[in-house]
Amino acid sequence: MTTVQGTGTAALSVDGPILVAEHVTMRFGGLTAVDSVSFRVMPGEIVGLIGPNGAGKTTFFNCLTGLYLPTSGRVVFNGQVLPPKPRKVVQAGMARTFQNIRLFSNMTALENVMVGRYCRTSAGPFTSIIRGPKFRREERETRERAQQLLDFVGLGHTTDSLARNLPYGDQRRLEIARALATDPKLVLLDEPTAGMNPQETRQAEELIFKIRDQGLAVVVIEHDMRFIFNLCDRVLCLVQGKALIEGTPAEVQSDPRVIEAYIGTGPDDAAALESELEEGQPDA
């Protein structure tokens, strides 16, 4: 069992952790949404981020991806301090999905993924107007790569479907494909199985393993405990903006403080949750 408070030193070499967050604090007025959270992700690792509603998980995500500028603390990605701009963060190699799906709903599945290629392509206005060989090659490569990614997430048949016509589970997978199109080193998934049935959840799990097998690091926010404990190498539990515990799924699962944070202090409640966690049921 390792609590986070001690681990603050950042090794800035590329072989070390891909992402290091040091004492990240985010305050909105008087409210401290994220309170001095430190955190690191190694390449090829799947890390889970759990915590009760309002624990600051998504806020922490937004700090990592440049949507928010942390009030204090810093985020080092791949040996560089992250610029506070989502676009630059993507450029550096960190891509994300959204808790509430934010696809470009009136574009086709393929076009959605092609937008993800934007930051890795460079055709400017003049090449686009003149249509030189470079432009045509780049456009063809973009299209081919996007189709590959659609096949990768299992949406190869939906190329020309409008995103808004896709079923819910497919939309979540399309969002992942779009994120992967930016050639990331680290993917942050915000509740990738929300609203999915058990079968779709299992598919999502396989997909995340497949992504990891490509050598990418993955950070997942989830409420589905069975999903998280099956999937992750390490789990960080946030409670009221503070890092409560970080460790292997087994360690986190059995920690009384996690149970307390989710359910309360009553001994009956704790027993109830303990059994629930052991059975791997999703929490409320």
Partner: peptide, 28 residues
């Protein structure tokens, strides 16, 4: 030509969801 290019796709993405476009690396 601009419409059917990387730039045109970027514009559509911005019209659809500016925040998401920015988060996907589009120079909004």
């Amino acid at each position: 030509r601009l419409n059917n290019s990387r730039i045109g796709r970027g514009w559509v993405a911005i019209r659809e969801d500016e925040k998401a476009a920015e988060a996907m690396g589009v120079n909004v």
